Simulated assay, not measured.
Amino acid sequence: MKTTIVKLEDSVGKVLFHDVTRITKAGKFKGTLFKRGHLIQKKDLPKLRKIGREHIYVLELGPDELQEEDGAAKLASLITGTNLRKAKPTEGNVAIISDTNGILKIDVERLDKINEIDGLGIATQHKDRLINSDEKVAVAKVFPLTIKKDQINRATQICENGGPIINVIPLKKMNIGLIITGNEVYHGLIKDEFGPVMKKKIKKLGSTVTKIVFAPDNPKQIVDEILKLKNEGVDLIIATGGMAVDPDDVTLRSALEAKANVEKYGAPVQPGFMFMISYLNNTPLLGIPACAMFYDTTILDLVLPRILAGEKLTRKDITSLAHGGLCLKCKKCTFPICPFGRG
């Protein structure tokens, strides 16, 4: 790369090699003052001086080099997988945007390897979180004004072994069966408050509660309802309540008697310690503790979107929620823009 530094007063008629950024305090403005390729005019000089510019670069690329935005665009193409699109380069950055509502999947090990390459940077959101359509999930960046093609080739080799490192798995529209357990609801002593909460949460995620049944604290009747829903072909069964350690809490026992494979009972998440995930063949059967009726945000908000994306969650998936699994129960909940579930 051949670099010439030109005084601002001598720069009229020269072409900018990179975006010029203007930043003001207190978050009022941060953006591009002049784009790459802009032909500097005399009227531009006061604006450039106001942002502290007294010189500009005039650069000539070598055959083994790329300009920063061209390098960032190539890097973004390497890492962008399914259900994602790339924005136009700006200020040496290329944003990666989701095309759908879904779960963000990131190969963190390979992400780290690329970020070890001098001159390249990729910033992402946390993996395994629910992403909305048109949401920015990552930004690819080249730090210097130019980057050696060899640096990009190293990133290419990392991505060739396993494909793009960032993908979004879309949510499916599932039919869900609810089993509301508890003598107090079954016998009409109190009004069911679990059903409406669950229906609202599930509807927001694009799926449907196709059937709600009620069962007393009787393992045989709960097993019967589980197997009926399974035979009716629902995609997911959720049993509410009965997850604690009292004698009348029999949901776990019922899942075992229904021959479900209990992947994990008890989760290192608060609210949600007494959560259960199990499978009847390939049909997920969840046991949801009463906290999901009381709190707006619980373990269910961490696992349900992933199940609706078709993931088969394992014991390890649940135990890995421990780091970041403590909800701070803020006066004003800002989930998912908060630390909960972001280990």
Rank of each mutant, 00 (worst) to 15 (best):
M198N: 07
T181M: 08
L33Y: 08
I131N: 01
R154T: 12
D19Q: 07
K173L: 07
I176A: 06
I106W: 02
P170Q: 09
L111G: 06
I299K: 00
L229H: 09
K191Q: 14
K25D: 06
G242I: 03
A123K: 12
P247F: 14
G325F: 01
V213E: 13
A87P: 00
T334Q: 11
L66N: 02
P339T: 12
K312S: 12
Y186A: 11
E91M: 13
L308Q: 02
L300G: 02
K136W: 08
M174K: 15
A267P: 03
T210R: 10
L75M: 07
K211E: 15
N167D: 15
K203N: 15
A260H: 01
I222Q: 12
P89E: 05
A155Y: 04
L302D: 02
G188E: 10
A309W: 00
I202G: 07
M276F: 03
L205C: 13
D112G: 04
K35L: 01
E9L: 12
L39A: 00
E263S: 10
K105L: 10
K331L: 12
L78S: 09
L8I: 15
I222T: 13
G324M: 10
L229P: 09
A140W: 01
Y265C: 03
G177Y: 01
M243Y: 07
A76I: 04
L61T: 08
K203E: 15
G206W: 09
G195A: 15
V303H: 02
